[in-house]
Design a protein around this nucleic acid. Structure first.
Lengths: 268, 268
DNA sequence: TCTATTGTCCAGAATAAACGGACGAATTAG
DNA sequence: CTAATTCGTCCGTTTATTCTGGACAATAGA
């Protein structure tokens, strides 16, 4: 174990920067993190020196554009994303409804791709690439959580608990646990107006060649809790996810990629 | 001064991850950075704990998806990007040629937005959002460098020097300095097949309300060094950049935004 | 099955980071 | 226009951390 305290603090500083607080000053950071001003100043200027933060002429700090570069590296080096994108396009063509792709990282559901539905009534409020939300009130999040141990799942909604988004959101832990077990058995998750009123989703997991769940896709549509999702829609989402999983597993490019690159890099 | 050594090293580790090397192991990092294995292990696991890296089941590391989230925060909190995007759309509609938006950060030119030209002969090899290139052989990069001191400019192409991309790339430092001085005087930069054969660009700077150059836009088209860019095209790019600058300067949302948010945040 | 390489962990030794205060500059309030 | 507050920056001392090399088990390869 043993995590470097300095890096941990640098991470805490980075976590201060979000949609509501795009810009931070030295004393502001010091107050919020309850550390001396000198320490906050060191952390901010150090993070600037490695490009993660950008120092304004006012002496205040914002996120650095280098983050975009790292993000592009990440997206480019995630080959299953291209496979999934093509499959999502086909799925959208079938239903004219919004489809999305997401992963679970750090206990948060992070959207990685989307295709907006061409149907005029399709969901247009889809998340941008990089949007992070709590996974519990979401078909995508739950289908990804279903493969994790209950201990890990618990940590994703601590300390705030299962926050209700609508009156249908599951807020009881034991009910939620039963729900996850059912999702793990049936291999897909439903969201019946639990994240947003009038919106229902179905999500299915994507596996890599080891059988691990690495991502999930979903189909979202305006529907009531009673109407829900049709069996045909659900099956098509499941089949699309299975198709993506198979492409990843059998395409030699993906199976061997990690090892090949590791070997090449090791030659240095 | 005084930059935290631990953060500096963490930055060096982060910089290892790029398009060619998406995945790194402990000993591999230790060899490359010439640090003990234990140290590399601590840095990697610490960077994972703050979400910047993701640990594979093999024990190797990749960039973490949290970076996408930070990138989305950055893009959302860069309001002039929306203003510029609308202007870029109009510029593309006028010429049907590819237009791009970029900033200078950490000595690198980083692309922030683009609109691909609808003309079938338009440049389709535009950079993705987040792409980072050396600024010297590029109209966008040079118009941004022109506002910097020569000392800063020098540091952007050290230690490799002015690398030639085509036979027209300026590789002599004194010639390059003269070129930058001319760009600073005339307020725009040309790229006549210096970055890619058969491609010419014109770029103009965007100023904020303080007069600082914060970004630049460019128009790219297939053209020979002799044909170059027409005066009309150049003037339209200049006018578009000026329009964006004025929108930023006079729109009260942008002028007061930083201070307002600072004040609100300070109330905590 | 045997070998080489990997990620992980531990305890002493070496060094960096944390801290509080002082300074000048910038901004706000009167 | 002036005064007072708040800001970012810097420095020297105290304190705590990180760094290092080696041993271990697990894994992948021959």
């Amino acid at each position: 174990m043993a995590i470097l305290g300095t890096v941990s603090q640098a991470g805490a500083v980075l976590d201060l920067f979000n949609l509501q607080h795009p810009e931070w000053g030295v004393r502001q950071v010091a107050r919020t993190l309850e550390i001396p001003k000198s320490n906050a100043h060191q952390l901010l200027s150090s993070l600037e020196s490695i490009g993660l933060l950008h120092r304004m002429v006012t002496g205040r700090y914002r996120l650095g554009f280098k983050i975009l570069t790292l993000g592009q590296y990440l997206l480019t080096n995630t080959p299953w994303r291209d496979v999934a994108h093509r499959a999502l396009v086909k799925l959208e063509a079938l239903f004219s409804q919004t489809v999305q792709l997401a992963v679970l990282d750090g206990g948060r559901l992070i959207y990685v791709d989307k295709v907006l539905g061409s149907n005029p009534q399709a969901l247009k409020s889809a998340h941008n690439i990089g949007s992070a939300v709590s996974p519990h009130a979401n078909a995508l999040g739950r289908v990804l959580l279903a493969s994790k141990s209950w201990r890990v799942v618990l940590s994703t909604f601590q300390p705030s608990g299962l926050i209700a988004h609508t009156l249908f959101t599951i807020t009881d832990q034991s009910v939620f646990k039963t729900e996850l077990e059912q999702i793990a058995r049936q291999g897909f998750a439903l969201d019946l107006e639990e994240s947003m009123l009038g919106v229902c989703c179905v999500a299915a997991p994507i596996h890599n060649h080891n059988g691990d769940i690495i991502a999930a896709i979903s189909l979202s549509l305006h529907s009531s809790r009673n109407e829900g999702i049709s069996d045909f829609q659900r099956d098509q989402v499941l089949q699309t996810a299975a198709l993506i999983s198979r492409s990843i597993a059998f395409d030699p490019e993906f199976v061997s990629e990690n090892r090949t690159q590791a070997r090449l890099a090791g030659r240095n």
